[in-house]
Amino acid sequence: MASAAQGSLPRYVVQRLLLMIPMIWVVVTVVFLLLRVAPGDPVSASVGGRLSEEELDRRREALGIDRPLWQQYLEYLGDVARFRFGESLSDNRPITSIIIDNGGATLTLTLGAFLVALVIGIPLGLVAGRRRDSAADVGIRLFGITSYAVPVFVTGLVLVLLAGGTGWPTYDIASPITKFQVEPVTHILLVDALIAGDMGAVGDVLQHHVLPCLTLGLLLCGVFIRLVRVNLLMTMKGDYVEAARARGIPERYVVRRHAFRNALVPLITVLGLQVALTLAGAILTERTFNWPGLGTQLVDYLNARDYPAVQGLVTFFAVIVVVTSLIVDIVNALVDPRVRY
């Protein structure tokens, strides 16, 4: 009975929720301290030289950075708990508004990249695992290492050069006329185009998604190829696989129905671990293709030395990574009950 209680799903979910709180606290604390150790203050760094000293003092007072550090920290924690991430100094926009307006572009880019990685990485990993040490295995492993090692912006520039002479769109999330015609309802352009029933706009948005999603997806392909290959080789040595072979089941069914399914279980965990890598790659991908997402906004605010905006966006990214890790752990517990113990 004690073992069953210990391995129950509700108990595991509660434990993961409780662990998420200190994880978020540590992350937001590190972000807060790192930006506070930078020389100078955010107001002077962002708008210094363009305003009088009196106006600078008024802005420091409004932001609260003239107060003791511990008071700023407590106020910062309270704002994060209420999902308030501050306000930009350079354009006076609330960070929450920036997340709503630009988050949809980053969301579709990351989801598209994961789709590309799954569609390309899983089949190639399966082929490499089935044909170990063959020419196909060596070629696939070389492709996986290269796709992971090459900087994402280099891959993007190569794809832009290859597509430049074909007329394929290589710039922005959609053509200007599409962005003008589609009314923002969800702030996810592809979804808004579907809601409007404008299939021409849907096609235009999908075309603009191909190169950025392929660029970021190739970064993840190497991880998926290696993971599927290694786990397939391990599961092929399992007793249940040998038993299936002994029953006379054809090899292709043994691989597909027995070994391959179990080899995919660790992939669920890795999907959560790759969220941070995907967000980091999304920043470079967005800059390469002038993608109007949160990564582009973050780089712009870094260049403007807008520390409050940088703090808010980095904190939001960190919370997303922690929450995604929680979701993946719960899904993993549903698929594989052993992780609950």
Rank of each mutant, 00 (worst) to 15 (best):
D79Q: 13
I21H: 08
F85Y: 12
I225P: 08
N332T: 11
L18T: 00
T29G: 09
I320D: 01
L89Y: 01
V323R: 10
R131H: 13
L157R: 07
N332I: 02
Q71I: 14
A45W: 07
D239M: 14
G238N: 11
R340D: 02
R82A: 10
D57R: 15
F289R: 10
T315L: 12
V319Q: 08
V275W: 00
P250C: 04
R252K: 10
Y73S: 05
R59F: 13
R16G: 03
V27K: 08
A45Q: 09
R93H: 06
R16P: 07
Q297G: 00
V230P: 06
E242V: 12
P212K: 03
T170A: 12
W168I: 00
L69D: 00
R229S: 04
S147T: 15
R67M: 04
I268K: 14
V185A: 13
A81K: 11
I249F: 10
Y73W: 11
I65R: 09
Y253M: 10
T215E: 01
L214C: 00
R229G: 01
L273P: 09
F224L: 15
R60W: 11
R252F: 12
V47Y: 08
L157P: 04
H187W: 13
T186Q: 14
V30T: 04
S97H: 15
W25L: 15
Y12Q: 01
G164H: 10
V228E: 04
C213R: 02
V270M: 12
L232I: 00
Q72C: 01
V150Y: 09
A196Q: 12
F143K: 02
F224R: 02
E54D: 13
R16S: 05
A246Y: 06
V254Q: 08
L189F: 05
I122K: 06
F32R: 05
F143Q: 05
D66P: 07
I95H: 08
Y240V: 05
G125E: 05
R338K: 15
Y76L: 09
P151S: 01
G103T: 04
V323H: 11
V185L: 14
A174M: 09
L19F: 12
G49E: 04
V255Y: 08
A105M: 08
T178G: 10
L216F: 01
V254T: 09
R338T: 03
A135M: 13
M236E: 01
R60M: 05
E183Y: 01
E54Y: 07
G281S: 04
M20A: 15
D336Y: 13
S3H: 10
R287A: 02
Q15N: 11
N262D: 08
A135R: 14
T285E: 05
H209S: 13
L111Y: 03
E55I: 05
L34A: 03
Q274S: 15
M20V: 07
R132H: 12
T29Y: 09
I100T: 07
L284C: 01
F317S: 08
L115I: 09
R252I: 02
V314R: 13
L277D: 14
T186S: 15
